[in-house]
Design a protein around this nucleic acid. Structure first.
Lengths: 202, 202
DNA sequence: CCTGAACTTGCCTGTTGCGCAACTTTGCCC
DNA sequence: GGGCAAAGTTGCGCAACAGGCAAGTTCAGG
């Protein structure tokens, strides 16, 4: 994590503010419930003005899901890093495997936030937004891999959308039975299933 | 459409108000752009108080996508009406085929609204919400068909999510090139592709 | 016709997003 | 170091919004 390009004080301070706002949002949401917190309170707790909050996030939810966004961007990076020869779906699942087996399940912050989503279905909407926001990004990644096989780009978008939908469903399923299996076990099975297609008999 | 159960004046009036609000929202959005209209204006145009708007919709977007919501519910109904013996994915695609070949492309209101979404990417978020809102509903439908084959219900949710994701992507793709093909042609190909799975070579 | 439930409305309060214009901090070149 | 431009922060203010509450209005069923 410390490998982040330390681009001078300015960049670091900005990132620190963003992180502070995110953490304040998460802590307050955990403490009082996500619907009972105000932007004011978050800004206060982060030691920053309400107006400044608006400079970083458009609303509470965006702040609350900041970590998710970063996580997903990281995943996009892992996809990009896969060998170019790999077919799209393989690259996606492989990247997800790398990501979740190594980092995913251990982050306590992630677990806390996940529980929050589970307890408050109103956040599910925001979660959907987070996934959707990265769909285009991921789709571009996939398009590169398809190259000539997919001139219209439709396949790439379908693959990206399906991949993210599967991850999202897996996450929600896992959240409902966190004890039974590790997240990646659920996700792996689901990706496998989706990869083989749903039109096949069983 | 007139087959709707005419449950007394009260129900009909309520539905009329909802419809009026939806139409007002759509017309105003088409005329001035979706970001330049207020709830007040919509309520005014629908001949109703602003407070009443809140009794029907939580916000502009929800009003604007009311027709989409209804359309999707209709689709759910068609799925339910498919023979019980049909495997889930077959039932879903068949229902979609019925729906879109018969009704979909002809509705001018739908086309107008679709163009609106295309012109204003800010609405894409709301569109995602609409699809997500029906995912659980559709997922229950699918679960019934899986029965014993899917005790945990994960498959059902995966299938529903994938199906809707494919429809959503198809819609967006079609919106970008409406002239080239009919919507259902795009969607059919996409569903076919997804049905066979993305892990297969090509 | 009458009573209760459902629906509408106005009023009001707390919250929010964002434009604007100071003001402070940081990056950089001399 | 000194100073200038760019970037970041803040307070102010405004239009818009969600939704509670209570008084009016309309509908349904006896």
């Amino acid at each position: 994590m410390s490998a982040a390009i330390e681009q001078g004080l300015r960049e670091r301070k900005k990132e620190a503010t963003r992180q502070a706002l995110y953490e304040a949002a998460l802590r307050l949401a955990l403490e009082f419930g996500p619907d009972r917190i105000t932007v004011d309170a978050i800004a206060d707790r982060a030691g920053v003005s309400r107006r400044t909050f608006s400079n970083y996030f458009a609303n509470k939810e965006e702040a609350l899901f900041h970590a998710d966004r970063r996580r997903m961007l990281l995943l996009c990076g892992l996809v990009r890093a896969r060998p170019a020869a790999e077919p799209p779906w393989t690259a996606l699942t492989a990247a997800a495997a790398e990501f979740y087996t190594e980092l995913g399940d251990l982050d306590p912050e992630w677990v806390a936030q996940s529980r929050l989503v589970r307890r408050h279905p109103s956040l599910a909407a925001a979660q959907v937004q987070t996934f959707a926001a990265l769909e285009r990004e991921l789709s571009d990644q996939v398009a590169v891999r398809f190259k000539d096989q997919d001139p219209s780009g439709v396949r790439a978008r379908l693959v990206a959308a399906t991949f993210l939908a599967v991850l999202r469903v897996s996450l929600n399923v896992w959240l409902e039975h966190p004890a039974e299996r590790r997240f990646w076990d659920v996700a792996r099975d689901s990706l496998d299933l989706a990869g083989r297609g749903f039109a096949v008999p069983t």
